[in-house]
Nucleic acid binder design. Structure first.
Lengths: 333, 333
DNA sequence: AAGCCTGTTGAAAGCGCTTTCATTCCGCGT
DNA sequence: ACGCGGAATGAAAGCGCTTTCAACAGGCTT
């Protein structure tokens, strides 16, 4: 940190290169439209001055900011991290900048963060975690920007949604476990809209297939290892001992397994366990954890495709993109 | 997403409120300077129009962006996440926006990301992970913005540094383990500048205290659970079996413990383990993991203090702020 | 030779704010 | 009654870009 002279501007570069500012601007934004020789001179002038375009001015003049706002509940420990990372990475590579906004587990700061994003005139908003407030959804719908909802797959997306059906994931897990012969599942359900949807769908499917209503435990988000341990201990108080515990995240599953083993209980022989998210640790744990895999990088990819199309002014073929999910059967169940 | 009319601007609000744009601007930026009644009318006009200031225009005109760039190697799994979260949160609360830039584990994209940040004329840059390139450090020094380096504590900060001495942390761990009676440490060292500094300091201190040079294993960053398992298996190939494994992160430690237990080896009786970072799971694991605690929220706090002072134009008392660290002794060592 | 197209460039008018400077209006001391 | 100072406001000049629009030079076509 130091101070003094203002940074060079486009007119400084233009003067040095012996062209007009307009030409420098063109060189920067649509290089193909400026003559070879001119380009060379401008390139040299930029290097010499150390010019960095002022993107605030650019955004103001062009009404396109190449700025994208990403909303996540939290980053501390989140299944979204991989997707976010792939996205931020990819966007940066294409010359965009990403503003990260944390909305808090209960979406407390959602509104103020959305206002901030809109005030920066971002080109797009990427939402992770569900915006349940209809008024807010409508407000976003009225703005002429791209809004991508990820992970969930709402019936009526704000604009575009990329994700999978949590209800189907829950139901499928119920079928999977029943078919494997389990009969007394216990659910550990994080207090998030999506997790609860999975939990509900699991229970419905389970009962539809003739099972009794599964017992369940709610835990706070973000989920973590320690919750698994507590969840394991809670098992003792249940009217009848479950033969499989369906956890809302791989971390919970991992903690539960560790606690079970510390108590001398074998997984999956004495009690089976499933997780969610198919984090790397699910495959690394002893025993390896049966989990639900969602291709996070596919979500990122599709999101970027959508953004590219929008920027190019093309129209989209689909407003709901289902990336699906897969139950990964491993040792723990 | 929809389109049509351009969003309201400050002159629309001004017209509706029957004042000049200048007054609305003042109302927005220094409310104390506008009369009570006028304020009321403006407030109403803003509400009626749904006005959101265009911050690009604001930043351009005022030369202050209230935009802060945060650089991290990655977010997927990182000890920095808590600090980042606290910081993003705090900054947003004070009316700033945060641009998150991923530099990649090897700082590959550092330069382009820094250029992007400077192009947006951010007010400050927060660096996590060490910028080793002296040319880049100098370049940043020449810019009239606040640069905060976190976690490390370089001799000659670019501007301000907030962190702790990794060398001291390594050395202290060596003393701690020796005093506890361990004699054959094995190091699992992530390939990051900071981790390696700790590892080296550990070894030096250990030998200075009369121990033999510790064996060690390098692992890639970001570290993860699976590496601990592999590290455990690698132990078998060592010339003599270590009595304590010093891991570069809690995740590694956790994986190592799980693998040891799966092999019927008791922790810490047969082999002790330490981690780093004091993540929540360190206290939750069975056995609980001895780790090194760094107060991440303190780092965030100090960073925000620095930013506040700079924005207020005050000068700083210190350019290097040591937040220290503590070895948290638990069951695993 | 006139007419046209394509490729390349420059002039100039904004983009929507902030901020200086000037102006007006009051209350107050003398 | 006069002048002064402070509070509140407005006029207007930018901030550093982008983007029309027009202009011009060649090269072709007819």
């Amino acid at each position: 940190m130091e101070d003094g002279i203002p940074p060079p501007k486009i007119s400084d570069v233009a003067a040095l290169a012996g062209v007009s500012p307009a030409t420098v601007s063109r060189f920067l934004n649509r290089p193909a439209t400026v003559a070879r020789l001119t380009s060379e001179r401008i390139r040299a002038a930029i290097a010499e001055t150390g010019y960095l375009p002022n993107l605030n001015a650019g955004a103001l003049a062009s009404k396109r900011s190449r700025l994208i706002a990403a909303f996540v509940p939290e980053i501390a420990q989140s299944v979204f991290n991989d997707t976010m990372e792939a996205m931020i990475d990819g966007l940066a590579n294409e010359g965009n900048s990403v503003m990260l906004a944390l909305t808090g587990p209960d979406n407390r700061r959602l509104e103020s963060q959305i206002n901030a994003a809109l005030s920066w005139r971002v080109d797009a908003i990427i939402l992770t975690g569900i915006v349940t407030d209809e008024a807010m959804r409508d407000r976003l719908r009225r703005h002429p920007i791209t809004v991508i909802e990820t992970w969930g797959l709402p019936e009526e997306p704000i604009d575009v949604a990329i994700g999978f059906s949590h209800a189907r994931a829950g139901a499928e897990m119920a079928r999977f476990l029943r078919q494997r012969g389990y009969r007394r599942p216990h659910l550990v359900v994080p207090r998030s809209t999506r997790s609860q949807r999975r939990g509900r769908a699991f229970a419905e499917q389970w009962m539809m297939d003739g099972g009794a209503e599964p017992s369940s435990l709610e835990v706070e988000v973000p989920t973590h290892f320690g919750q698994g341990r507590l969840a394991y201990r809670g098992l003792a108080d249940l009217p009848h001992r479950p033969d499989v515990v369906v956890c809302g995240s791989d971390w919970i599953a991992q903690g539960l397994i560790v606690e079970a083993q510390a108590a001398g209980v074998k997984v999956p022989d004495d009690v089976a366990v499933t997780g969610f998210g198919n984090l790397r640790l699910a495959g690394d744990m002893r025993p390896t954890i049966t989990s639900v895999d969602v291709d996070g990088s596919r979500v990122a990819e599709e999101a970027m495709k959508v953004l590219r199309k929008r920027m190019a002014g093309e129209s989209l073929e689909a407003r709901r993109i289902d990336v699906g999910f897969r139950i990964i059967a491993r040792e723990s169940a």
